[in-house]
């Protein structure tokens, strides 16, 4: 079975000013697949992720070149509205960042409000919180503050918020690194459930997390893609010696 390619990246370069952060990366992510991106700090993995929904260019002095196709359409094409693109390609960050002044309910539907409210916000609210595996825990306090939630719950709230605008792709940048092991396990379980509907690209420093959650793993080093392959292969028998050194802990 060969799934359709959802994200097709070819010869992607990204810079911060003069710093060449991503160098000629080509990668394909199949529809409803999970790609994990691993590599040491500063290897360009987060920058790569941010190029996929054009968040990279929001940093002053940052630019990108190359091709990123989403369903065959170039996301860097002249007619593409980055704001609309980011609705299709949602993002979840390392630190849970709910809007503190809003209620749990308003956090989830915040993206929808910006885009004009849908017919039935209650339906969206329940659907997204259920998909984010948070509904049962918050359904009786939707008007409460998100700050009363635990870190893991806040992160799932952020995932629910990302899901509300009905994206096709979810980018996750270290989504569980600030969470305890139980909350991490819930996020990982959630990734398994979300891949039924979404294509996911996950950046993580936690190699076991990459091994547990992803179908494909890409290893970045010094801005280059060293190797990308089936996750099982990357962790049992990688082709490149630099990948081998990294997954066995022989770096630096």
């Amino acid at each position: 079975m060969t799934a359709a390619v959802k994200i097709d990246v070819a010869r992607l370069d990204a810079w911060f000013g003069r710093v060449h952060a991503v160098k000629g990366v080509s990668i394909q992510v199949p529809e409803r697949g999970v790609l994990a991106v691993i590599g040491p700090s500063g290897c360009g993995k987060s920058t790569f992720l941010r190029c996929l929904n054009r968040m990279h260019e929001l940093v002053p002095g940052a630019r990108a070149a190359g091709r990123v196709l989403l369903d065959g359409d170039d996301v860097y094409g002249g007619s593409v509205d980055p704001v609309l693109l980011r609705r299709r390609v949602g993002m979840v960050f390392q630190r849970p960042n709910p809007f503190p002044a809003m209620s749990i309910r308003d956090n989830v539907i915040a993206g929808l409000k910006l885009n004009g409210l849908p017919r039935d916000t209650d339906e969206v609210l329940e659907r997204c919180l259920t998909q984010a595996a948070l509904w049962d825990e918050v359904k009786d306090r939707l008007g409460g503050s998100p700050l009363a939630l635990s870190g893991g719950q806040q992160q799932r709230l952020c995932i629910a918020r990302a899901l509300a605008v009905e994206p096709e792709v979810l980018l996750m940048d270290e989504p569980a690194s600030a969470l305890d092991p139980i909350a991490t396990a819930r996020i990982e379980e959630l990734i398994h459930e979300l891949k039924e509907r979404y294509t996911i690209v996950l950046v993580t420093h936690n190699m076991q997390q990459a091994a547990r959650t992803s179908d494909l793993t890409a290893f970045f080093y010094l801005g280059e893609l060293v190797e990308c392959g089936p996750t099982e292969q990357i962790f049992t028998n990688p082709k490149e010696s630099r990948t081998e050194d990294y997954v066995t802990g022989k770096f630096g």
Binding site: F235, V247, T248
Partner: peptide, 9 residues
């Protein structure tokens, strides 16, 4: 240690 790669093998 959760060994990987050649260590796991």
């Amino acid at each position: 240690r959760q060994p990987a790669g050649s260590d796991l093998r």
